[in-house]
């Protein structure tokens, strides 16, 4: 667009009109396209911005939740407050783009709205810590603080990320308490295994994304299993506060979001 004015040999601005008056032929049509495309680009921009912030807030909720010491209890006051404030923030951010992602536009900007996966991760983790059960799609939808439809895809990929959080939580609490936490004759190790089995039974989706999530999931399960093994084999010798080697702890490849 920026190109300067074309000039003729004598330096006078070349009358573009001789060549460009006929351009009027498609001018109106392209102007209409421009308006439509601008609207689309602006909308996408808004969604990406909000999504980035919602992702950040969700991650912070997850960090906060990792500080919970005992599952199946009401969260300590400070933690609950922190979560509530951040959910309020998320609610504000999402309500700003609710109109942008209705009807046909919900899937159109699905990729830009990846924050919902992160939010599902946070909500499902909170739910597990509080109830030691897996949150359902309906419960997750109800917990989303905005009038935005959660797709099964958001839900499923959010749950994939739950494995990493469960693994971290298991690692820390095991180090602190010397046992795998859990009630109802279950513990976090058997829970993560059960959840893993459920995913293994699903029909495989032939995408790279799905395959890599499955792989990361298996690694997380494996790490928790090793914790259990460690407890049995060297449980008695383990000095209090000993933390397993965490060097390859982060299961997620540096994600762009």
């Amino acid at each position: 667009m920026a190109g300067g004015t074309k000039r003729d040999y004598d330096g006078n601005a070349r009358a573009k009109s001789t060549q460009e008056l006929p351009r009027g032929r498609f001018h109106a049509m392209f102007e209409n396209f421009r308006d439509e495309l601008d609207e689309h680009y602006d909308r996408r921009e808004r969604i990406i911005k909000a999504s980035r912030d919602v992702t950040a807030q969700s991650k912070k909720i997850i960090f906060t939740l990792q500080r919970v010491k005992q599952p199946n209890k009401d969260f300590p006051k400070g933690i609950q407050q922190d979560i509530d404030t951040r959910l309020g923030e998320i609610s504000k951010l999402l309500s700003g783009i609710t109109a942008d992602v209705q009807s046909i536009n919900r899937y159109r900007y699905g990729f830009s709205l990846r924050c919902l996966e992160e939010l599902v991760e946070a909500l499902s983790f909170a739910h597990y810590l509080r109830h030691q059960t897996l949150i359902t799609l309906e419960e997750t939808q109800a917990a989303v603080p905005a009038d935005i439809m959660l797709t099964p895809h958001d839900y499923m990929y959010g749950l994939f990320d739950l494995f990493g959080e469960l693994m971290r939580f298991a690692t820390v609490t095991t180090a602190q308490t010397g046992e795998l936490v859990g009630d109802y004759e279950r513990n976090i190790s058997s829970d993560i295994q059960e959840l893993g089995c459920a995913f293994e039974m699903l029909p495989q989706v032939p995408t790279k994304d799905f395959r890599s999530k499955m792989e990361v999931m298996r690694q997380s399960i494996n790490k928790v299993e090793k914790l259990g093994y460690g407890l049995v084999v060297r449980g008695s010798e383990r000095p209090k506060g000993w933390v397993p080697d965490m060097k390859d702890d982060d299961p997620r490849p540096a994600s762009p979001v």
Partner: peptide, 24 residues
């Protein structure tokens, strides 16, 4: 199902049927 189970089986049944529908 044990009295207090980790997950409602309908969760994954529903995911499975959605994935199968998508494939179709």
């Amino acid at each position: 199902a044990p009295p207090h189970s980790l997950l409602d089986p309908s969760i994954f049944a529903s995911l499975e049927s959605k994935l199968e529908e998508e494939t179709q």
